[in-house]
Amino acid sequence: MRIAVVGAGGVGGYFGARLAAAGSDVTFVARGGHLQAIRENGLTVRSPLGELRVSPGAVVPAIADIEGADVVLVAVKLWDTEDVARQLRPLAESGATVISLQNGVQKDTVLRRHLPAASVLGGVCYISAFIEEPGVVVHNGTLQRMVFGGYGGAESGPARALLDHALKAGIEAELSPDIERAIWEKFVFLVGLSAATTAVRQPIGVIRGDAGSRSLLYEVMREVVEVGRARGVALDPGFADDRLAFCDTLPPSMTSSMHNDLEHGHRLELAWLSGAVATLGEELGVGTPRNRAVADILSPYALGAPAVPEA
């Protein structure tokens, strides 16, 4: 099976490297110095599960350079989804199955606007990984899980084949009979963690230990559950309580990628996280005051560190 990984950052780089190390035919799409480093020295993954270095079958600068694929894993930032979807059309029309491992609940809607609906499967991943330097991905902790499947529980040969390859590579993976629910379950936690750590500018240990910020974390997640249920997703009404209890088990130093992006002056995925919850809430008539407040508070940083106007 030919696997293409669009976006060789923390998520795509990690899972792609594991698959390549286990013998899968993997093509990476990368950019800039990261692309050059992988071409010259291979891709290195540093992980508590073991360090590895792979020389992928191919690493290319553009989707158009992919010479055929059976499965495409999309792992770019959410604002690049529309552009990537347009470029993937020839591969999808040639039979490739597309699985997004991105955050958010709107990603597959964007993909299906440009690709045959049957070619898009749902996917979600659980991992903390980032590019430490060009050609090097660092995996934080031992969590490295992928969940994917067809919408409506549809069976998929490519999904079954990817599952086999992932398990062979030592990746915790599973097929979901209700992938939409799985995506929303992660979304509840992800929006809560991202909103609270970024708005408060502190890791989860501080957030959960203070009554005010703990309430913010909980209410943000509760609003996501209400929006999901209003959209017909089979979320348990008390799922926010479950996720708050889960937050109490996390390392106190844990933060979010959005918090990290804020601290480094990078663009934020705000519009696809709390911003999306607020927008969907308005469409569905569900109140989301906490997520709206977070979106408004962080709005000046959405495109990166704001410039201070001159007097």
Rank of each mutant, 00 (worst) to 15 (best):
M1S: 15
I3A: 04
G9M: 12
G13P: 03
G13M: 04
F15Y: 13
R18T: 03
A22L: 07
V26K: 00
R31G: 03
L35C: 13
Q36G: 14
Q36V: 06
Q36N: 13
L43T: 09
L43N: 08
R46F: 06
S47C: 13
P48C: 09
L52K: 01
L52N: 03
R53Y: 00
R53S: 10
V54T: 07
G57R: 14
A58S: 14
V59N: 03
V60A: 05
D65L: 04
D65V: 08
D65E: 15
G68K: 02
D70M: 07
K77L: 08
L78K: 05
W79E: 13
W79H: 15
D80K: 10
T81D: 02
E82M: 02
A85H: 05
R89A: 15
P90M: 13
P90C: 06
A92C: 08
G95D: 11
S100E: 12
S100M: 09
L101Q: 05
L101I: 06
N103V: 15
G104V: 04
G104A: 12
V105G: 01
H114F: 15
P116Q: 10
L121V: 08
Y126K: 04
S128C: 10
A129E: 11
E132T: 10
P134G: 11
G135E: 07
R145P: 06
G153M: 05
G153A: 10
A154K: 15
A154Q: 09
A154F: 01
G157K: 08
P158T: 11
P158C: 09
R160N: 12
A161N: 12
H165N: 07
L167H: 03
E172W: 02
D178P: 03
F189A: 07
S194R: 04
A195N: 07
T197F: 04
V200P: 00
G205W: 06
G205T: 11
V206S: 10
R208M: 11
G212C: 02
L216C: 04
L217Q: 03
E219W: 09
V220Q: 00
V220E: 01
G232N: 11
P237G: 08
F239W: 13
A240K: 00
D241V: 05
R243T: 12
L244F: 14
C247M: 14
C247Y: 08
T249I: 04
P252T: 09
T255W: 07
T255A: 08
S256M: 06
H259M: 11
G265F: 11
H266P: 00
L268H: 07
E269H: 02
E269W: 05
E269R: 03
L270E: 12
L280S: 10
L280G: 03
V286M: 10
T288R: 00
T288V: 09
P289K: 08
R292G: 13
R292Q: 15
D296G: 07
S299Y: 03
P300T: 10
G304N: 13
P306F: 11
P309R: 14
A311Y: 05
A311G: 15
